[in-house]
Amino acid sequence: MKSKADRYTLTSSQKMMIFVLSMSLYGLSNMFTELIPKLQLGPIELSVEYFAFIPLTLCILFHPLYAAIGAALGEVIFGELMLGQFGGLGELEKFLTFSFAMFVAGSMVRDPRSRLQVGTAAMTGVIIHQLCSSLVDIGKVIIGVEQFEAVPGLAESVVLVEGVGFLNDVLFSGILFALLPTLYLVPRLHGKIEPLLGMKPRERKLRPETDRRRVAMLAIVGVVLGLIAFGAESLSESGFDWGSWDSGLADRLGDGAIWVSVGAAALVSVVVLAVFMLRKKTTADRSGELPHG
C-alpha cells in the first residue's frame, strides 16, 4: 500500500465490496424503474428508463470497472430475472453495453470533486449506452419481422420510435436521472462513503489502475457480439427465411424435413451454449476473479 501510494490500488476484498454494493443498489433501483408507469404524450414517451446516477456515482467514486460490472449484473438479477423480464440473449448485449458505458464514464473522471468532469462523464455514459441500445433495438425489429421492407412504413416508424426514444432517454432520463442526481451525490458522498468500505477516497493524484488485459477482453467480447448481431441481421436481410427454406427442403426430403428443422433449432441452442461457455471463460477473467484478482 505504501509503496504504491500514488496509484489507486484495491485489495480483492475491496473490489468485491464495490461489486456487491453496486449490484444491490442498482438492482434495487432497477426494480423500481421497471415498475414506474410510463407517461405517454402521443408518440413521445416520458419514461424513467433507469437510475443511471447510481452506477455513475459509484463508478466515479470507486474503481469504475467493478462498479460497472456489478451494476450491470444487478440489473440482470433484480430487474430482469426476479421480475421475469429476462429476455435471453438480448440481456447479454445490455449487460455489455451498459457496463462498457458506465466504465468509460467512470474512467473519464480524474477528480471526483470537479463538477465539470462529473457532469460530462454522466452525460457521456448515458449517450454511449443509449446509442448502443437504440441500434440494437432497431436490429431486433429487423430480425424479428421478416419481409421487413415489405411492410410499408415500418422501417420509418422503427427509426422514428427509436430516435425519439433515444432523445427522450438522453434528455429526460439522462438529465433528470443521471446528470442532476450524480452532480448532487458525488460531492456529498466523496470522502464519506469510502471509509465505510475501509478504503481511501479517489483523489486527483490517485489514478485508478486499469488492467489493460481486462478492458481489452471487454472490447473483444463486445466486437464478437456485435458481429453475431450483424450476421443475424444480414442473414434475415438476404431473404434467409426458415419458412421458405424449409418448404423447399420438404419437397425433396418429405417428412424428414421436420427433423431437419428441429435439428436446426437445436443447433442454434448448442451454438448459443457455446457462446455462453466462451463467455464464461472471458467473464472468469473479468468478474470471476473479482474476489482474488
Partner: peptide
C-alpha cells in the same frame, strides 16, 4: 425515490463491508 438513494448508499456500503468480510 432519487433522494432516498443517498442514505441508502451509505447504509448499503456499511452492509457490504460486513457481508464481504
Amino acid at each position: 425515490l432519487v433522494l432516498s438513494f443517498y442514505p441508502l448508499m451509505l447504509a448499503t456500503a456499511k452492509r457490504s463491508r460486513t457481508t464481504v468480510e
